[in-house]
């Protein structure tokens, strides 16, 4: 039995994020137990899991919003302290856009650029908005955006500080075909430029399309992991289904 799901293509394996035996307790509930994983530059890992498995908690710990109860977290070769610490090299795309609905996309991004201390905030904000194709409505308040536009704006926010690691929490939810296509492309080019990414999803196809490694999180534990190479969607779906039903088989 391997000790942790490793996902890097071996060529340039600087470890971007490494978690060792992470445990998170909230109250008396153990939300995560003994979670270890490693993702290197150019690498990508998909985490499959049902609702309540602790996926979002895991991303929140990796991004530094929360600290782990136990275990070690290394990011960019440095150990992160117990309290959790955010890092501008990490882009976190959550369920929500983190954009103020009453402000325009441009104002939102300029605000975040200033918060992150980027140089030339307005210039950089316009640049990324062009990249995600929102220039035409960048001065409209965010509350008028459709789900697809909102997700594009959120991606612009995430890409703005030029992150090296992307943490994506079910990024495809509620997107139409065009927006999905756009997200696929964005992630591909992000990876091609050396970025690492961790993707949360409960959709097997997304996992296979985006990432090289896949792991299953059930009840706070990583129970199964593999390379995506050689896996067809239906076989992976069967495997996932099997673990959801509390299977105890190891590959």
């Amino acid at each position: 039995m391997p000790t942790n799901p490793v996902s890097d293509n071996g060529a340039l394996n600087d470890i971007v994020v490494r978690a060792l035996h992470l445990e998170k307790k909230i109250g008396d509930k153990v939300v995560l137990r003994d979670v270890s994983l490693e993702v290197g530059a150019f690498g990508s890992l998909a985490i499959l899991g049902p609702n309540g498995a602790g996926k979002t908690t895991l991303l929140r710990i990796l991004s530094g919003i929360w600290g782990p109860t136990r275990g070690e977290l290394w990011r960019f070769g440095k150990k992160v302290d117990r309290e959790g610490r955010s890092d501008p090299r990490i882009g976190y795309l959550g369920h929500q856009s983190f954009l103020y609905p009453s402000l325009s996309a441009l104002d939102n991004l300029i605000f975040y650029a200033r918060l992150w201390g980027l140089e030339h905030p307005s210039q950089r904000a316009e640049e990324v908005l062009k990249q995600v194709g929102l220039t035409w409505s960048q001065t409209d308040p965010v509350r008028t955006y459709s789900r697809g536009m909102l997700q594009r704006a959120a991606i612009a926010r995430v890409l703005m500080p030029r992150p090296l690691l992307l943490l994506l929490d079910e990024p495809y939810t509620g997107l139409d075909m065009a927006a999905q296509e756009f997200l696929d492309q964005t992630l591909r080019s992000f990876q091609a430029s050396g970025g690492a990414l961790i993707l949360i999803t409960h959709n097997v196809q997304e996992a296979l399309r985006v990432s090289q490694g896949v792991t299953i999180l059930v009840r706070g534990r990583l129970v199964w992991w593999s390379d995506t190479k050689g896996w067809a969607a239906d076989r992976l779906a069967l495997e996932y289904q099997h673990w959801l039903q509390g299977g105890a088989r190891h590959p």
Partner: peptide, 15 residues
Amino acid sequence: HEVPEDTLTGLILAP
């Protein structure tokens, strides 16, 4: 007004 789009998390993520 931090609640609807969870912007508070966005603020926490800033260094």
